[in-house]
Simulated scan of single mutants.
Amino acid sequence: MPELDASARRNDAHDKYRQLVERAQSQPPARTAVAHPCDEVSLESAVEAAKLRLIEPILVGPERRIRAVADQAGLDISCYEIMDSSHSHDSAAKAVALVREGRADALMKGSLHTDELMAAVVARDTGLRTARRVSHCFIMDVPGHPQPLIISDAAVNIAPSLKDKIDIVQNAIDLAKALGVGEVRVAILSAMETVNPDVPSTIEAAALCKMADRKQISGAVLDGPLALDNAISPEAAAVKGIASPVAGRANVLIVPDLEAGNMLAKSLSFLAGADAAGIVLGARVPIILTSRADALLTRLASCAVAVMLAAARRVSAAAALQ
């Protein structure tokens, strides 16, 4: 089995990502349509993930540009299929079509804008919609924190309604299960831990928790509203007198809106040295979102998350047939 090279192992503080990649390598690689890998970072991400047997890439983009980037960066792409396209919008459409045709188990963003890719994903007649709301999760590797933190939604849903949040929560729970989390503990975040009629996020948090009690949301224990401190710090929860299986021990954090989630994730990244692997859920297949600013290990971790999700879907599909 291939191993992570020295550059991917250079930061021992992020060994949770390394372990995730190594677990994913025990699964079959995910057939992945890579949309518009026309810069060095996105093409390198696909090539390195393929070397680790995380993905089997189909490179979708202007073939001449892809080959020129590979030559300039010294990347060997001779063994990978290339599907030629005219421009970034065409790349997104053709990558999505590969999924619809059953030729790809995952979708990966290249150097095109996220909005371009997602427009193709959510297109009503030709996209990858399901009954679920599409949502994004960060899987945060925070130095000093004992386990990864899943944060949703910090990238797709701007001001989600209560109905949207049902799917956002369920998507995050299903992700945690696919990653092998034994007990999924979901904190519905707000600025406070009491229900306040003047703060809508506290009312929605209480409603989501009651939905979980009535099995409208399944697979996890929920609590909320919780402030960030008493969601992840046992000491803070004890000071506030909050006794629940989630308080102080949450491994999934559901934020009120995109602005709060984006600021939380970036605060962890830039102030606490955390890495943030990204995945989009709720479509027919997992969608790998990487940033040019991400370290290689973070980009590989995003691919590993997609592999684990694809494996969980195969198990679920097989169980449904029995």
Rank of each mutant, 00 (worst) to 15 (best):
E22T: 03
E22A: 09
Q25N: 03
Q25C: 06
S26K: 14
S26C: 12
A30D: 02
A30S: 13
R31C: 03
T32I: 05
V34T: 09
V34I: 12
V34Y: 13
A35R: 01
H36C: 12
P37C: 05
P37D: 04
C38I: 02
C38V: 10
C38W: 05
E40M: 01
V41D: 14
V41E: 15
V41C: 10
S42R: 10
L43R: 06
E44W: 07
S45A: 14
V47Q: 06
E48L: 13
E48I: 05
A50L: 08
K51W: 11
R53T: 07
R53S: 14
I55T: 03
I55D: 11
I58Y: 08
G61M: 00
G61R: 00
P62F: 09
P62Q: 15
R64Q: 15
I66S: 00
A68E: 15
V69W: 08
V69N: 01
D71T: 06
Q72D: 15
Q72N: 08
A73Q: 02
L75K: 09
D76H: 06
I77N: 00
S78M: 03
S78F: 02
Y80E: 02
M83N: 11
M83R: 14
D84Y: 08
D84W: 03
D84G: 00
S85P: 03
S85N: 07
S86Q: 15
H87G: 13
S88C: 13
D90F: 11
D90I: 04
A92K: 00
A93Q: 14
K94A: 13
A95T: 06
A95P: 10
A95W: 01
V96H: 11
L98Y: 05
V99K: 13
V99Q: 15
E101L: 13
G102A: 09
R103T: 05
R103F: 08
A104C: 06
A104T: 07
A104Y: 05
A104W: 08
D105W: 07
D105P: 06
D105T: 07
A106Y: 01
A106K: 01
M108C: 10
K109W: 01
S111K: 11
L112M: 14
L112I: 02
L112K: 08
L112T: 03
H113W: 11
E116R: 11
